[in-house]
Design a protein around this nucleic acid. Structure first.
Lengths: 197, 197
DNA sequence: ATTGTGTTTGACAATTTTGTCAAGCGCAAA
DNA sequence: TTTGCGCTTGACAAAATTGTCAAACACAAT
C-alpha cells in the first residue's frame, strides 16, 4: 500500500520458509527444490522472485544479521544500569535462540563465504558508548580488569557457543535434549556469575 | 611393515589434503574434483580408497574428534594441579586452532548431520574424575559455585567460540587480522581470569 | 469485453557432481 | 620372464541441481 510495495504473499512465503528451513531445522544445504516443496510452491518462483538461489541466501542472511544488530543497539542505548543491559541481552539472545535454534551456527558457518555489514559510524558510536560504560563498571570494581573487547568476546562466547555447538555439546557431554534444555535454563545465572565479580 | 598395513602414500595424501582443505582453508563444500586437484591425483582414486565422498568426510571427521578426545584425556589424567591442567588445555587448544583455523567451525557445523562417538565407560570415568577435582577447587574457594558441567561449557565456549566464529567476530568487531591475532594471544590470560576467582 | 500486468506453470537445457567400469601400468614374488 | 596384485587412469552413465523461457492464468483497470 504505502507506495508500490506489496511484496506478494508468495515472495514472503518463500523467504520465510527458507529461513525456517535454515534457522529452525538446520537444513543449511537445502536445495531450491526442497525449499519450494516446503513452501508448497513451484520451484521456478524462487528464481522469479529472487533471481538466484544465492541471492535468496544473501537476503535471508543479511536480514538476520541486521535483526541482530538492531537488538543489540536497542539494548545498549536503553536507559538502564550496565548489568541490567547485559541481563537483557542474555534474555534476548536466548529468546531468539529458542525460536531459531540453528541461527548461530548458520551465521558462524556461512560467514566463511565472506560478507560485510554495519555502517562504520554506527559501530564506532556503539563501541565508544560500550567502552565508557564498561570502564565505569571496572572502576566500581564490579568487573575484573580487561580490554573491553575481550569482555565482548566473553559475552558472545558464553551466550552463543552452547547454541551454535549444541549438537557437539550434547554428544560429547552425553546429555539428553531435556538435560540440555535444563542446562540452558540455568545458564543465564552462570554467565552473569562469570562475567561479574 | 608392522603387519599388513602400509596405507598407500596416495591414500594418506588424499586424506591429508582433504583435511587441510576443510580445516586449514575452510573449504567445507569441496567437491571430490577439488580435493583430487589439490592433491594432484586422479579423482577416481578418492572412490578407490574411500568408496564415497561421504565416507571420506566421515573418516576425517571421526579422526578429528578422536584426536580431540585424546588431547583432553591426556591432560585430565596428567599429574598436575587443576589450574595447571586448565592452562594446559587452553594452550593445547590454541595450538591446535592455530594449525587448523577452521577445525572448530567445521566440527560445529558438520555435527548437525548426526554423529556419535566416545565409549560410554571412558566418558563416565572422565566426568567423574573431573567432578572430583572441580569440586575440590570450589571448596578451596578458587572457583565460584556452579554445576561442573556448566564450568565445562564455559571453558569450551571461551576457548572455541572465537575460533569457530572468527570471521563473524572480525567483521562485527571490525578488527584486522593482526588485531584479532593479538586479541587471541591475550586471550589465555583473560580466560583464566574469568574461570577462576 | 478487452487490455495489461503481475503471477504461476511445465518443459527444457546446461552444468555439476558423483560413482562405476574395464583396461592399463608398475613392480615384487615366484 | 611370467604371474599376480595393488595402484592408476580415462571414459562413461546416472543423478542432481540450477537457471531460462514461452505460454497460460488471474484479475483489476479501462
Amino acid at each position: 500500500m504505502g507506495r508500490d510495495y506489496k511484496k506478494s504473499d508468495t515472495e514472503l512465503l518463500i523467504k520465510n520458509t527458507a529461513r525456517d528451513l535454515f534457522f529452525k531445522e538446520g537444513k543449511f544445504g537445502a536445495t531450491t527444490q526442497e525449499i519450494a516443496d516446503a513452501a508448497k510452491v513451484n520451484r521456478t518462483l524462487i528464481n522469479y522472485y529472487f533471481r538466484s538461489r544465492n541471492n535468496l541466501f544473501s537476503i535471508i542472511f543479511q536480514e538476520a544479521v541486521e535483526q541482530e544488530e538492531i537488538f543489540t543497539q536497542e539494548i545498549l542505548y536503553s536507559d538502564l544500569p550496565f548489568k541490567q543491559k547485559i541481563e537483557n541481552y542474555i534474555d534476548r539472545s536466548f529468546q531468539r535462540a529458542k525460536e531459531f535454534p540453528y541461527l548461530e551456527s548458520y551465521i558462524v558457518s556461512r560467514l566463511n563465504e565472506g560478507h560485510l555489514y554495519a555502517k562504520k559510524e554506527d559501530w564506532e558510536r556503539f563501541i565508544e558508548r560500550f567502552k565508557t560504560e564498561f570502564e565505569e563498571e571496572v572502576r566500581k570494581g564490579n568487573i575484573k580488569e580487561m580490554e573491553p573487547i575481550q569482555f565482548i568476546v566473553n559475552i558472545a562466547s558464553l551466550i552463543s557457543f552452547p547454541f551454535a555447538a549444541r549438537p557437539l555439546l550434547q554428544t560429547t557431554l552425553r546429555i539428553s535434549t531435556e538435560e540440555f534444555d535444563k542446562l540452558i535454563s540455568q545458564r543465564k545465572e552462570v554467565i552473569m556469575k562469570v562475567l561479574f565479580k
